[in-house]
């Protein structure tokens, strides 16, 4: 009987820097995104096998994580292994911040940890997509990727990580939730589809030259294009406050309710600007929270 336990963590995100429809090498169009990772948001998973033949997940509502652990056991271990899967996460649920994906990824990684196996990220992604039909790009920490979240494949790997971004998080509809997969997928028109090309071009340049300001422009443009599919109340007001305090852009959860006012973490004045922008947001009745890179 196997002994010991496996442990892993995965992080959540604060929505996306970009999300849209992009052409891959085979000139196939795919939906893809670049997540804005948020290291303060984590799902911690412990996988503890026992002598039963039942996999029990806690909290019991995390069905997808359970399914992911089962798929991983079936693919790499002995099918039918009984275990407890304990999930401890501080990622807000159903806000487009990757709580479900983080649970799924951490569960897969916890099983692999117990098995003592290092799997290719592609295989991890494939299991994640089968468990939850979509995934995000938070698994990739060393380099930024444009990730086809419904296919579980990397469309473009950039040579460097994202430049450091500090941001103020604003939930534009506290209380309301968006089921990431129930919300109807965006039907982009031709102008929007073609607009994603220059966005991708600038994304490449921004990452290559570690230019947070350029990244801010990409995120803002993506937020604007997607606004008609899942509008964020009072987005214009947030943007106006951002302009006053030298924010480099806005980014949104394309399948959620949060908006991030982005600041260049390398800019000496960022801290002061964030403080003043936060105060201004509070004055306008928002409930801002600051996240440092």
């Amino acid at each position: 009987m196997p002994i010991g336990a496996g442990y892993a963590e995965a992080i959540g995100h604060h929505g996306e820097l970009v999300q849209g429809l992009f052409e891959d090498d085979g000139v196939q169009m795919r939906r893809a995104l670049v997540s804005l990772p948020c290291r303060q948001l984590r799902s911690k998973v412990r996988f503890t096998p026992n002598s039963s033949d039942q996999l029990i997940v806690m909290p019991a509502s995390r069905e997808k994580a359970k399914r992911a652990a089962e798929l991983t056991v079936n693919a790499f271990g002995r099918p039918g292994t009984g275990a407890n899967l304990e999930i401890d996460s501080n990622i807000p649920l159903s806000r487009g911040m990757g709580s479900s994906t983080a649970d799924v990824l951490a569960s897969i990684l916890a099983v692999l940890d117990w098995l003592g196996i290092e799997a290719a990220s592609h295989d991890v992604m494939q299991i994640a997509v089968s468990a939850e039909t979509a995934c995000d790009s938070t698994l990739f920490r060393q380099q930024a990727v444009l990730f086809a979240h419904r296919d579980g494949v990397v469309m473009e790997a950039f040579r460097r990580p994202l430049p450091p971004i500090d941001f103020i998080s604003i939930d534009t509809t506290p209380g309301a939730t968006v089921d990431t997969l129930e919300f109807a997928t965006a039907r982009y028109d031709q102008l929007e589809i073609e607009s994603f090309r220059p966005l991708r071009g600038l994304l490449r340049t921004a990452i290559k030259s570690a230019d947070a300001r350029m990244l801010g422009r990409v995120a803002t443009a993506s937020a604007r294009i997607n606004e008609r599919f899942l509008p964020k109340p009072r987005l214009a007001e947030i943007e106006t406050i951002g302009v006053r305090f030298d924010a480099i852009g806005i980014q949104v959860a394309h399948s959620g309710t949060v908006v991030g006012l982005m600041f260049d973490a390398m800019d000496q004045k960022a801290s002061e600007n964030i403080k003043r922008a936060t105060a201004a947001l509070k004055q306008s009745g928002f409930e801002p929270a600051v996240f440092r890179h």
């Binding site: 031709q190 607009s195 220059p198 600038l202 490449r204 340049t205 230019d211 350029m214």
Partner: peptide
Amino acid sequence: SDNPLSYGKVAEQFVDRLGK
């Protein structure tokens, strides 16, 4: 209108090479 619509690729090349 597909004529002007086709130029997203050119814009991509410019920002890819030159940034702003």
